[in-house]
């Protein structure tokens, strides 16, 4: 996994509540057996005027000029600013894969759906919860100033606006540690292999019907 430490990134505002994972990456792209290459199909149904299918040359497709991701001023954005319950719906990890592949490293919203939130951390993508008033303020500032960037520091757990205003954010120690180091979580867990085996042996005794 790609490590995340600090980022000074251009912000793209997506002013919709309840953005679901079907919108983030439509189902036809879930047929891929790879975990990369989803970026060009991020928000496919909003981003293009035609119907997208796997295998199409996305560079030749008609872009929807009214969709915020297509505005020239947001080209290369790395921070997605969103509304409440972002990432609701399916558990598809293709959603964070598509965001990451498109170049996003941070999503800021008043709330996230649980599974999406968790999936982000497995992919070097940092989801940040901020109070609705702060998100409102960031939307206003971002829309008012072209080239609006935010500085995100994971170690310090801070977001800094261009005017120097600083907002803190919460992250569990475990997730922070994994993301800062870009660590292989399976490798970390396997350090507890003996404990897992001991638990399992005890379980096999007390609930033998769970084992074939």
């Amino acid at each position: 996994m790609k490590a995340f430490t600090t980022l000074n990134g251009l912000v793209c505002p997506l002013d919709r509540a309840n953005v679901d994972t079907d919108a983030i990456i439509p189902k036809q792209f879930l047929k891929s057996i790879k975990r990369s290459g989803f970026g060009p199909n991020l928000f496919d149904e909003w981003r293009y005027l035609d119907h997208g299918e796997p295998g199409m040359d996305n560079s030749q497709r008609p872009l929807n000029p009214d969709f915020v991701l297509n505005f020239p001023r947001y080209a290369g954005a790395q921070v997605l600013l969103a509304r409440e319950n972002f990432g609701c719906g399916s558990s598809r990890e293709h959603a964070p894969w598509a965001l990451e592949d498109q170049g996003f490293r941070v999503v800021i919203a008043p709330s996230f759906a649980d599974i999406f939130f968790n999936n982000c951390y497995k992919n070097g993508l940092l989801p940040i919860v901020q109070p609705a008033e702060v998100v409102d303020q960031l939307f206003r500032e971002c829309e008012a100033a072209e080239g609006y960037t935010l500085n995100v520091d994971l170690a310090a757990q801070t977001i800094t606006t261009p005017s120097g205003q600083v907002f803190g954010f919460e992250v569990t120690e475990h997730r922070k540690h994994c993301l800062l180091g870009g660590l292989d979580e399976i490798g970390l867990t396997l350090q507890h292999a003996e404990q897992i085996k001991a638990y399992e042996a005890q379980r096999r005794q007390s609930q033998p019907w769970l084992f074939a």
Binding site: R92, K122, I196
Partner: peptide, 19 residues
């Protein structure tokens, strides 16, 4: 019972646990 992402699918396959 709950849904998990693909990284967690791999984690369960390899360790029988979830973080």
């Amino acid at each position: 019972a709950h849904g998990i992402g693909t990284s967690e699918v791999e984690h369960v396959m390899a360790t029988q646990t979830l973080v």
